[in-house]
Design a protein around this nucleic acid. Structure first.
Lengths: 134, 134
DNA sequence: CTGGGTGCAAAGTATTTGCATGAAC
DNA sequence: GTTCATGCAAATACTTTGCACCCAG
């Protein structure tokens, strides 16, 4: 019984081959959008339907196994839920890097200033990565 | 000659009544998504077409008069380009508040750590606002 | 006038749904 | 065996495009 099977079961989802393949690819890429996921998965899984991908992305997100990351000027990507982190996006090569950013001070200050109960913080920094800087 | 006319001209756009109405509404709401914009604008402008809205949102964004703001679990909203700021989103009443957050330290530290040239920083804090906290 | 904008209808994408079959547990 | 997932096709939603007509400058 592989890791992805365990992950799925822990999130109350049946471990179908399609689902395992989806998680496998997302895990290997780190972040991937629907189109590339579909393209990529068809190598392993010629018969898979796009509807199955959509349904599963949806179910797995509901069950907190996957997270949608919205990006400026790009299609959303999906990642496996892990600890809190932010994203660095290169507008040139479109690579995405997970970064650790301490946003506690910001959250605390805004939270008290506006009497707002913050439970999520989405930060995307974008620009040009090392490799793409001419 | 009203303010919106001036704004449009400054961004090299003809000041049509449709465009003025679009900016007027976005300005009054602060942030609005396409559907609500369309609904809202039809009060002033019964004949306007959704295609006109899409075309103009696109053109005005290209010309840096409007900015699309992507939000977790919500449709994107559009706002008039103004100084750098972040957003507070209430998951309950869906209101959005502009906030001033100093992200310079974060940007500098990430920028040097990854040799990354950051030119944009999108931060959305979400949770429950004052009014929605029971 | 002239260039560009508008509205309509149609085309193109993206995403969701219903349902019969099939697989997980 | 029961429950739920899959794949297909159809439906829906969202966005873009082409074109004839019209208006801003």
């Amino acid at each position: 019984m592989n890791n992805y099977t365990i992950m799925l079961r822990e999130h109350n989802l049946k471990a179908t081959p399609q689902r395992i393949a989806i998680i496998d690819i997302i895990d290997k890429y780190g972040h991937i959008n629907i189109d590339k996921l579909y393209e990529s998965i068809k190598n392993k899984f010629e018969s898979i339907s796009l509807a199955t991908i959509y349904k599963n992305i949806h179910t797995m997100s509901e069950n907190l196994l996957l997270l949608e990351v919205k990006l400026p000027n790009e299609k959303s990507v999906y990642e496996i839920v892990k600890g809190k982190h932010s994203h660095l996006l290169c507008n040139s090569c479109h690579s995405i890097i997970d970064i650790e950013v301490d946003t506690n001070m910001i959250e605390n200050s805004i939270s008290s200033k506006y009497s707002f109960n913050i439970d999520q913080s989405d930060l995307v920094l974008s620009g040009r990565c090392k490799n793409c800087l001419t």
